[in-house]
Design a protein around this nucleic acid. Sequence first.
DNA 1: AACAATATGGTTGTTATGGACGTTTTGGTT
DNA 2: AACCAAAACGTCCATAACAACCATATTGTT
Lengths: 305, 305
Amino acid sequence: MSRGFAEDRPYISTLEAAKALGVSVSTIKRWVDVDILPAHRTAGGHRKLMRSEVLALARQGDLPREDLARLAVPIRKSDIDVKAVADALHRALLEGDVASSRAVVRCSYEAGLPIETLADEVIAPVMAKVGHGWETSQIDVWHEHRGTQVCTAALFELQTELERRAESERPLAIGAAPAGDLYILPSLLAQLVLLDAGWEAINLGGNTPLESLSKALRALRPRLVWLTISHLEDVEGFVSAYRDFHREADRQGAAVVVGGRALIEAVRARLPYSSFGDRLTHLGTFARTLHPRPKRPNRGRPRKV
Amino acid sequence: MSRGFAEDRPYISTLEAAKALGVSVSTIKRWVDVDILPAHRTAGGHRKLMRSEVLALARQGDLPREDLARLAVPIRKSDIDVKAVADALHRALLEGDVASSRAVVRCSYEAGLPIETLADEVIAPVMAKVGHGWETSQIDVWHEHRGTQVCTAALFELQTELERRAESERPLAIGAAPAGDLYILPSLLAQLVLLDAGWEAINLGGNTPLESLSKALRALRPRLVWLTISHLEDVEGFVSAYRDFHREADRQGAAVVVGGRALIEAVRARLPYSSFGDRLTHLGTFARTLHPRPKRPNRGRPRKV
DNA sequence: AACAATATGGTTGTTATGGACGTTTTGGTT
DNA sequence: AACCAAAACGTCCATAACAACCATATTGTT
């Protein structure tokens, strides 16, 4: 049974958007007219706003954000307690509760939690805890595997939602985890962050040789490449392959962003890159710098040019 | 673009158009009546809109497009051409066309293609072709990685759909791919088949040690365990670990189904199991034997979803 | 602190939209 | 060929979205 999920009605009216963002209908209409909010028109002239676009605006701007819960399934209150979300997800993942895990991820996103925060403050620590519990054998490997599966499913659901908003003119980013690195969540999260920042993001997944990534670079000519490194088997091999890869990226004019918990200082010092971030928040801000979204609502008199 | 798959049905109904354009059926009817949308009429007066016309208008004008993917591929059970589906998917995967790939998978399922068939006749051969193209270097590894990602996303979308229909009293099945096997699609497909057959199915994913699977067995007490084996590094180690695992499953009264392309005759001869299948159709029929679903009286026109 | 510039939010009359209704067509099954 | 339920039809109408306008709130500059 689907309870009023976004899938049922991707489009909302100006009134709904107004209520969700805590501004008047007139304002919403004006924002649409000056391209702050993208919208389609019906043949009769009614504006149709995409729900996810409104949420995206709310997430990045400092808007009143009156009642985002109206747009989505409310958690409890409109204030999101990151710690509580993490706890809820941890519990759901350990119990293998697919429905709850999905709901936690989806609801916190829809309630306005930025994907970067979701990744850095919720998913990363929770998965670390699950992994740690396995190492200290309080729980078993299969718990961790089940948790990863459930988490992956939840994130792919988000991916679907984010890709629905595809605009026409998006810059391209591609990324992966290098050969020998089998963790799939970090690169998937990076993809989600970039999609949310208005990019077209192609994730090649784990265990991708850097030589292959270079070829993809030549074929697709992206403006940004990300590399999430959670596990390094052969540091020397990686560093040498990376140098070739970075030269290629440089030649193509693509920015390179690297990150991941296996990228310790000793290794990082030997690599050239455009930006490093041990947290996806960095990737998000970097991506938004490179490709700022069109406009943001102003208040009062605009600055002089 | 999915040619040879959508072109057989050039006409759509008002409801389909309404869903695709994100407006109500009443509105579509009115638009046709005032010549905003061109349409033909059946003898009985039903409007038939040409798919391409609606698409063209939606793109050229500013009409909302709720889900153009829906327009891409509505088909009927009777005329699903498995070959055409496979071709469409192959093309979409090679091009990295996320939307089309998703649409092909979702629509063939919705049109009534059994998941087993989708797995055996569409996804397996297509992914084999993509993999083969890589080995013969007509395409590169990154093509194959991108294809796998896109395919995974499409399948997780199906998973969501299947779990939404979950009944309450379902027997439990768990499964995985063994240690060293990093292919994730086969086990995911097996999970989907079991979900479709009315089971609660937990997929532990690739690279799961059999010892861990045994522990999961003891903790969850499923009625069925599946094991998809696409790659075997250490045959001897696997066989010996498997024997322990099978003994445990036997003790718990769980049926064991094994399959996968790495399970060649020489290896299989040394393993005890409840059922073997190199195709997921076998898993499906076996699961339905173990847990027959109440047969629905099929009267009148079936729902088209 | 006063001013200018502009964003906001409420009005107006007008009209597109979408749900409800009972009826008819349709297409698959027996 | 008869049957049947899903789906489309036409009609009606309350709701809500539109454009245009104006008073007020908010903000940067003088």
